[in-house]
Design a protein around this nucleic acid. Sequence first.
RNA 1: GACCCCGUAGCUCAGUGGUAGAGCAUCUGACUUUUAAUCAGAGGGCCGUAGGUUCGAGACCUACCGGGGUCACCA
Length: 502
Amino acid sequence: MSDQTRNDQELRRLEELRIIRESGVNPYPPVFEKTHSNISVLETFSDEDASHLAEIAVAGRIMAVRVMGKAAFMHIQDDGARLQLYFRKDETPQFYELIHTLDIGDIIGARGFAFRTRTGEISVHAREAALLCKSLRVLPVPKEETDADGNKVVHDAFVDKELRYRRRYVDLIVNPHIRDVFVKRSKIIAEMRRFFDGRGWLEVETPILQPLYGGASARPFVTHHNALDVRLYMRIALELYLKRLIVGGFEGVYEISKNFRNEGMDKTHNPEFTMMELYVAYRDYFWMMNMTENLICRLCVAANGESSTKFAGNHISFAAPFRRATMYDLLREYTGLDLFGKSREELLATAREIGVEVDSTAGAMKLLDEIFSQKVQPNLIQPTFVMDYPVEMSPLAKAHRSTPGLTERFELFAAGAELANCFTELNDPIDQRARLEEQAALRISGDDEAMTLDEDFIYAIEVGMPPTAGIGIGIDRLVMLLTGQESIRDVLFFPQMRPEKQ
RNA sequence: GACCCCGUAGCUCAGUGGUAGAGCAUCUGACUUUUAAUCAGAGGGCCGUAGGUUCGAGACCUACCGGGGUCACCA
């Protein structure tokens, strides 16, 4: 970036960098032997005996500077925690020579001893100090004040969402609380792996670049492989390859990885998102409901220390068991109507009667889905397994063992949002081929989200897949729910943004 | 893709047709336990971009760029 794009403050920092180099100090030294994190100093300090903190080395980014003639205070931040440093001109003369060239944003290290200042703040009295990295860009600097009641008040917080998302590294520096969401995200995923690994299921990796895409209803990203000169699609779901592995003899496989869908973006959709899918042989969707309750409860505890969370003003408890109800029972509960077996025309008339906005060209399944989305889904605040969807809505789910026309499928809802989708997997190859042929026909008639017919997948199912239960959990949405974030952008480090012009 | 709101200093924001502002940040000076440090002074702006209306536009109109939100599509 040219100097013409720098403002006066940034040009001054370049000038300071020149002065530092000319004075013989390396502004980017290779190493600093840090002995303590800020947190460890703050947590282990004792007024009675601080001898264990008599010779320590700390380092971090300067977040506040108060030079008072021949003494100076700075706050440095590492790992989201701030620690005060105290300097005296007569004790660190070489460092003090350059103190006027230091800025908020620079990274420094100091060796010295921990003490408590007259005003009560645990600090490090520096005997030696060194610049570790000169910063050339200006950080937004919110100021923190502790008011009379001991509450933290932040002044001029850095809140511009566009800047926060485009320059997440700055957001993470100046808004340390943002880190908490991402630390929780990491804990949730780590706990999920522990849970699955502890049951002996294998974490696997399957292709992201696929000659045919499938496993969900969505539009894909299209790309091209030069050497093979073929069109490839970025996967929209993990399902079809994981089932091939069950066919191959693994009895429990899972994958946590990115899916890509070329669709609109909003508070709950990012074009790339993280999905977990798990397949376990010889199990069905009832078994998977039990597993899921235990899993989600454990994840909530891992993130929040308790089995409940708050989202959009609702207190949501993930203590097992969750409510279980069939789709048609819930429709009856919230509309007063029995919609099972109704024709497209009857459903269209019903939708209009009960005030559900629908497209008059919509098919029966679309109508049913719309009525459910508008009348039932917003009421599903506490976790609820919605069971037994119509076969037309679920081309990869096994036909219901007792009710014709339905499948053995559940979706888990909480806070009005879908969290998981599970089936007893369809392993009847004749039925599977028929369902996918139906999807292919829909595609030809113009439904660009209908599934393609993947002959190799059918071949695998014809080789034979044991009875299997499979589940998919949208990790981003789960993290949103468990951390109380109402926008997917706040649980992704780098949400997709439109590139800035020029 | 449609509609609504927003875009002014590094950050947070005032500025409702008449000389571009404040706080923090920055710079200069004072100050050896301060903490939103304090005190005194100073610098910093293609007011998102391009047209238009007007004697005069940061403000009004149009288009475009970027963001946020609602809807549509979806997990």
